[in-house]
């Protein structure tokens, strides 16, 4: 009898209503999307043949293409990714500081910094590359800036969040001792967020290696240029070489990042 009167419920009615609304909206969005998306069925019928054809054209790979065009482009890609990451660290540091509510206790500035970070993240690196190619002309400069500007949002957001989690103790101690603002930042905040900072930087570098590989498609330098050339000329055996190279580099970068992370953190 008592069990009937006091039943345990995992969610309040409000929570259940919210969840139900979410499921309803999700299913509705999916159904509407499937019904309205434009799919040309004729293209799908011969997809298996096209895939077989694709692999037949890719194999055997044209290995001579690697020393001819891919190697130099690969080195350029690595430099674009690394330099872009370094540049973004420099640019994201101040924005991240401005976004951290405990370091800069002015809501208007925090909101503005967050808007900058969201804008940087929303515009894709390829779109950034398009913009910078229009401004600086095709080449690695546009690619480096695209990588840097796309990374500001990512690095700045995570760095700001790391700053907000910093312990107040050392900050108060230094402020109480009369330390000027730069000292407070360098000796109280920085040692606390340094591991997070380098970890974010490595993580972003890994992502940037992947991203910089496609920037060449819009003319921003790197291995994507070699890919674009091979694609336009429909030399699929050369495309295969470029793809294999990208795959190898990405795996290598991931191994490097994992090794360094386990060492320093």
């Amino acid at each position: 009898m008592i069990a009937d009167q006091r039943r345990w419920e995992r969610f309040t009615p409000r929570e259940r209503l919210l969840r139900f609304t979410f499921y309803l909206v999700a299913v509705a969005a999916f159904v509407v999307s499937v019904q309205t998306v434009e799919v040309i069925p004729e293209f799908l019928y011969d997809a298996p043949e096209q895939v077989v054809d694709l692999f037949a054209r890719m194999w055997p790979m044209d290995l001579k293409y690697y020393p001819k065009a891919v190697h130099a482009a690969l080195i350029e890609t690595l430099h674009i990714a690394t330099l872009g990451t370094i540049l973004s660290l420099g640019l994201a540091l101040p924005v991240g500081i401005l976004a951290a509510r405990n370091v800069v206790p002015v809501t208007a500035i925090n909101q503005f910094a967050k808007l900058v970070l969201v804008s940087s993240r929303s515009v894709n690196s390829l779109v950034w590359a398009l913009l910078f190619v229009a401004v600086f002309g095709p080449g690695a400069l546009a690619g480096t800036l695209a990588i840097a500007f796309r990374s500001i949002g990512f690095v700045g957001k995570l760095f700001g969040e790391a700053l907000e989690e910093a312990n107040r103790g050392p900050v108060e101690a230094l402020t109480a001792a009369g330390a000027p603002w730069p000292s407070v930042f360098l000796k109280a905040y920085w040692p606390q967020v340094q591991p997070a900072f380098w970890s974010i930087a490595l993580f972003r570098w890994d992502i940037n290696i992947r991203e910089s590989a496609v920037l060449g498609l819009v003319g921003a330098g790197g291995i994507g240029v070699a890919l674009d050339t091979a694609l336009t000329l429909l030399y699929w055996d050369q495309v295969a070489v470029v793809l294999a190279t990208i795959f190898a580099v990405v795996i290598l970068a991931e191994i490097i990042v994992t090794t360094i992370r386990s060492r320093i953190i």
């Binding site: 998306v37 434009e38 799919v39 040309i40 293209f43 799908l44 997809a47 096209q50 895939v51 694709l54 390829l126 992947r210 991203e211 590989a213 496609v214 498609l217 890919l227 694609l231 793809l243 990208i246 795959f247 990405v250 795996i251």
Partner: peptide, 21 residues
């Protein structure tokens, strides 16, 4: 994970043609 979505998209454009699919 290893290929950028754009590169995967290039391969799928070849396989299933231009468009949303």
């Amino acid at each position: 994970r290893s290929f950028h979505p754009v590169i995967v998209a290039i391969l799928f454009v070849k396989a299933v043609g231009f468009g949303a699919i």
